[in-house]
Design a binder for these strands. Structure first.
Lengths: 232, 232
DNA sequence: ATAACAGTTCAGGCAGGCTTGAAAGGTGCT
DNA sequence: AGCACCTTTCAAGCCTGCCTGAACTGTTAT
């Protein structure tokens, strides 16, 4: 009978190997960006993260060797994407743990709680909007295979936020995108639907834009918590 | 505006630090055992895992320094426990990912699917029984603070398995315990209720004990999948 | 063809982690 | 007091990981 740390235990070996890949800030951030926002080329990722191409390239080579990312070459570009959609569950659990833990350290600032990202809501509010829509079946979780988020089978959660997904113009703009939040490391909702959700929240007087900067002030935390239980 | 790998980002730092702690087989196994089965002394853990006291002591010192475990001394014993119940979410996500990933490698053996652990069910069946009972609110998730698992608010899931929790004798034996599965690295149900669940499954003819060994043969996978959707 | 661009690989050097074995500090038993 | 036991600490040795800078392959633009 093999012991607990039998090196032949595949589950243990895969778990520790994955944890090791997630233990570096460059690798973790790269995986979070790929999982939330879809495929990127190496230089896109390097510019976004703010590291040199060779530094990122070494990390991506490691991630490729361990099977966590896949690469598709087209011309002189290399398009990286996460190779296993199941990874997002681990990434979300890790971010939730780290976020819940970090909140104990000090009171979050107003900008942590809610701010705008172009024309949609980010910060804790944006993250909770996204996770609630996913849990309620109104959005599919990002699979890392494209830069657009698919709608889920049950759009009622959109209606409760005051948005009709079908009424959002399907113009040139993408309907729903996932945008990784810089501090919480979880996706928030962008695209036309993200803009519509923020408009509805402003319209109902639940939040208000500050005249300067990107901070959103929460005006009715009780109603927001009723709409989004995870917000409380 | 700080970049993506700003060292002052607490969430990123906590996430990579946690991943680093989980990246060693001894530390990961120690945390899994503490989270599922409750507090252990150093020698209990060292004997269970099969490593020397000094090797485990070094790892526990690291885990203590990072705040993942807490220790309470009583006499010449040191009782270790996980310091944050939220850790179990990350551990479960990691094990589920590693298990799902490992299942692709090769067909699971009958013993992987179901076997007995003393008088209760273990293997994939045991793990799915436990997770289903937790998800349905019949059991509280283990919090790592005791060796007994508390019942949840809604016992209907027990009834569907053919067990009446109130009828289980509250004798000397513990009512419900979590027992970490060696291969899947997730808890399965032990104690008097674990025994009662296995008895009910045998009684209904859904599984059968082999005359030799501890393997349980699945006789009615369809009905088991109906009772436990995650089993399919 | 030449130059610029995108990506990959590699060696060197530095830093940190893991294991082992021994030693030391405390505690309980006889 | 003496001894056995539980736990912790520490240094040595070994191994691995990370970053940098440069070289190299292949592609696109002028």
């Amino acid at each position: 009978m093999a012991g607990w740390i039998d090196p032949e235990n595949r589950v243990l070996a895969k778990a520790t190997a994955l944890a090791g890949e997630l233990a570096d800030p460059v690798r973790l951030t790269a995986l979070q960006l790929l999982a939330a926002e879809g495929p990127h080329t190496l230089t896109q990722l390097a510019d976004a993260i703010g590291v040199s191409a060779s530094r990122l390239g070494n990390h991506l080579g490691r991630l490729r060797a361990s099977g966590l990312v896949a690469v598709e070459r087209s011309g002189r570009h290399a398009l990286y994407r996460v190779a296993d959609a199941g990874l997002s569950g681990v990434l979300a659990a890790l971010s939730r743990y780290a976020g819940a833990d970090a909140a104990v350290d000090r009171e979050p600032s107003p900008a942590d709680i809610a701010h705008t990202c172009y024309d949609h809501a980010a910060g804790r509010l944006g993250v909770v909007v996204f996770s609630t829509l996913v849990e309620r079946g109104a959005l599919r979780p990002p699979d890392g295979r494209g830069d657009e988020v698919a709608l889920g089978p049950d759009p009622t959660a959109f209606a409760e936020l005051g948005v009709d997904p079908d009424a959002v113009a399907a113009g040139r703009r993408k309907r729903a995108t996932a945008c990784l939040d810089r501090t919480h490391r979880l996706p928030h909702l962008g695209g036309a639907l993200g803009s519509a959700v923020l408009d509805a929240l402003l319209e109902r007087g639940l939040v208000r834009r500050r005249p300067e900067g990107r901070v959103l002030d929460v005006l009715d935390a009780g109603e927001l918590t009723r709409l989004l239980p995870a917000f409380g």
